[in-house]
């Protein structure tokens, strides 16, 4: 494999950005590991772990890290702008339409339904990622504290993180070997 240049990185991430409805990551994995073979499956998993470790949107960080590995700062800029250019333009277009037609009763009513469904999607995502914690009571306690602080007490996020991140790491299970 020849390492992809800035142009290939832009094109690859542009296609997964525009096709990625409801989650870009699975598409990105298929493009990077299976179709273009830029990374092996284990290299992909390892780089994704870094992006989950870092703050911010995972797939956005992933485009930065992958671009950097193959083509330095220009590669990062190309992959990142490829990923975001299309979706940002589309969402602004949707915003324009919403502003123009949002006051129509039928559109306003449709939005009530759209927003209710969107809440359900976030709820499902939350339950999905919460499921593996069932066997780790201390981690569940940390997750519960984060939940209560933000959803029930409506505390600001920064102090909550400053307390709970260390607590989470200290109570995390030790790994074997």
């Amino acid at each position: 494999m020849t390492p992809p240049g800035a142009r290939a990185l832009f094109a690859g991430f542009f296609s997964v950005g525009m096709l990625g409805f409801g989650g870009v990551l699975p598409l990105a994995r298929r493009m990077i590991v299976e179709e273009r073979r830029w990374l092996s499956a284990s290299e992909f998993t390892d780089l994704l772990a870094l992006c989950q470790f870092m703050p911010g949107p995972n797939i956005v960080n992933f485009s930065v890290a992958l671009g950097a590995r193959f083509a330095g700062p220009a590669g990062s800029a190309a992959a990142l702008s490829g990923l975001l250019a299309g979706p940002v333009a589309v969402v602004i277009g949707l915003g324009v339409l919403y502003t123009r037609f949002g006051a129509l009763p039928v559109v306003a009513h449709a939005f009530v339904g759209l927003a209710s469904a969107a809440s359900g999607l976030v709820l499902a995502t939350a339950l999905n990622i919460a499921a593996p914690l069932r066997t780790r009571p201390k981690s569940m306690l940390v997750a519960g504290a984060a939940f209560a602080a933000l959803a029930l007490l409506r505390l600001p996020l920064l102090p909550v993180l400053l307390v709970l991140l260390p607590a989470g790491v200290l109570t995390a299970p030790r790994t074997r070997g």
Binding site: A49, Q52, F53, V122, T125, A126, L127, I129, A130, L133, R136, S139, M140, V142, A143, G144, A145, A146, F147, A149, L150, A151, L157, L161, L164, L165, A167, G168, V169, L170, T171, A172, P173
Partner: peptide
């Protein structure tokens, strides 16, 4: 990573 995940779960549930 495991510690961060626990906090993330709580934040996304919230």
């Amino acid at each position: 990573q495991a510690g961060l995940t626990a906090v993330t779960v709580g934040l996304v549930l919230a």
